[in-house]
Write a protein that binds this DNA or RNA. Sequence first.
RNA 1: GCGCUUGUAGCUCAACCGGAUAGAGCACCAGCCUUCUAAGCUGGGGGUCGCAGGUUCGAGUCCUGCCAAGCGCGCCA
Length: 586
Amino acid sequence: MKQKIEALILQAVETLKQNGVLAQETNPQVIIERTRDAQHGDYASNLALTLAKAAKTNPRQLAEQLIAALPEDAVITKVELAGPGFINFFIDPYAQHAIIETIHQAGPAYGLSQVGAGKKIQVEFVSANPTGPLHVGHGRGAAYGSVLADLLQAVGFNVHREYYVNDAGRQMDILATSIWLRYLEECGEVLPFPSNGYRGEYVRNIAWDIHDKSGNEYRRPVDLVLEDIPADEPQGGDKELHIDALIARTKTLLGAGLYRDFFQIGLNTILDDIKDDLHEFGVDYQQWFSERQLMDDGSVEQALACLRAGGHLYEKEGATWFASSNLGDEKDRVVVRENGQYTYFASDIAYHMNKLDRGFEQIIDIWGADHHGYIPRVRAAIQALGADESKLKVLLVQFATLYRGEEKVQMSTRSGEFVTLRQLRNEVGKDAARFFYVLRRSEQHMDFDLKLATSKSNENPVFYVQYAYARVCSVLRQLDEKGWERNLQLGIDNVRLLSAEHENQLIATIARYPELLERAALQYEPHQLIHYLRELAHEFHTYYNAHQFLVDDAGLRNARLNLICAVKQVLANGLNLLNINTPESM
RNA sequence: GCGCUUGUAGCUCAACCGGAUAGAGCACCAGCCUUCUAAGCUGGGGGUCGCAGGUUCGAGUCCUGCCAAGCGCGCCA
């Protein structure tokens, strides 16, 4: 419909060019908007307002001339000049009725499109360190990323979902050491636990499990473990020096081989838990990409060689630096430490080079907002690698501040005091959790009230949408009980009986679903889909209260059934995209 | 101090490339169940769009300054 009106307006513009009203070189971008107010018709164009200046005339006069030059069209019942120079189009209310039949034919495919044109696009999200279970902060990134990926796929992109596993680096060593110390306790040793270690209950569980399976294989005498280790913070020492010494001691006492085994068991256990957790949350990936693999297969070395060849690296104070400040970063960054180890940033450069090499036309990184300072250096790296930095899009997800009623919930992975995603799912269920997370724009700070989300009452908006779906199902059950059958063709033949205001409104809303999907996807804003579904559900509930569907007149009955079945289909398509269930009864 | 993000109704949030009288939900008030599920519907009150300038036919939206909140500013990840 938009295209149709656009074409008509362009014809009018051509006519005015010939009349000399508009300059020959006028090549306007015609914007047709759906109106927000029914008084303004169905569609509106602001073309006269934007062209008035160039045409050296006032907008209302130009709009009048445009309207006069507009070709006749059966679908358009009225064209009005309004306000400062808007052109409002009123559409024949029956013109949109055909969408009901379209929806019945397309079914689950209704709303899908090909604007993405099969473009290869990668979405990397969550990518939490495998040092513990996912918490509710990760949940938002998981819900946002997965819905965004599904949206992009729905509009025709070739989407690759990926999780970057930070399975190398110091944090992982701290984890392995933490598990080992708990394991020693399991063996019967008594020793202090480092203040900087991972204290969560899951660490004990892994240790318990290893002890159960391997007995005392990894056991070493506690006095050897603690010998000459610098004091921990509570004892007046430095917690970083303390933990680093413990890591080194763990490696020495176990030896490289056993340490590696032990490390791997810890990593696998936690990663399996994360995979399982996300899967149950409705989040699945095409690939789990290992950071350590980049280290092991020489990718990091190769990436740094590439930067070096481009003259972007230099040595200073024993470390190797990337001159990112030449490329928009606020300062240069270390890539190889004084001790010869790569920084996290070094492997991330290699990772992004790898992404580019895999031929993605667009790379979307979804990060927690606390990583925003990291963006300029990654962009700098991509430029230094000789790639087009506009291929990278970084989307930030603000962490949710967690409340339990009025009380703010403090979270820290290290101390083990946090609410896990799994706990949240167990309390509120997958549907409500996903719905809640996607409800708000991702850059928006968000207060997540556990008390509210866990309430199984009508305060929870997910039920409202699901209830609309269940209500349609219920009507169909009633139909069956009355011994009637739905007749699609009879309904189509009588579609013009759908003339009530509620019906026209509902038809207009389901008709714009494809546009909505496209916009939500291209703007990376899944919350638009949620808001749309709430609106659709609301219009359905209103319709339900205002009109009886199961009337004696078979023509009207089937016309209405076709409409509510089309609503049901759109609700299902939207909820499926969100990976939220569609209950047949509630 | 510098940088990024945010600031809209009592609370939580929307507002499509700048567009017409800024909208929902919750909460509050008043109504609607002998009729397809009341987890629903109808109506009502409630606003200095953080503040001040600027850009223009038009600004919640763009620009500048200020105020406030969150985050960041490691040879951590």
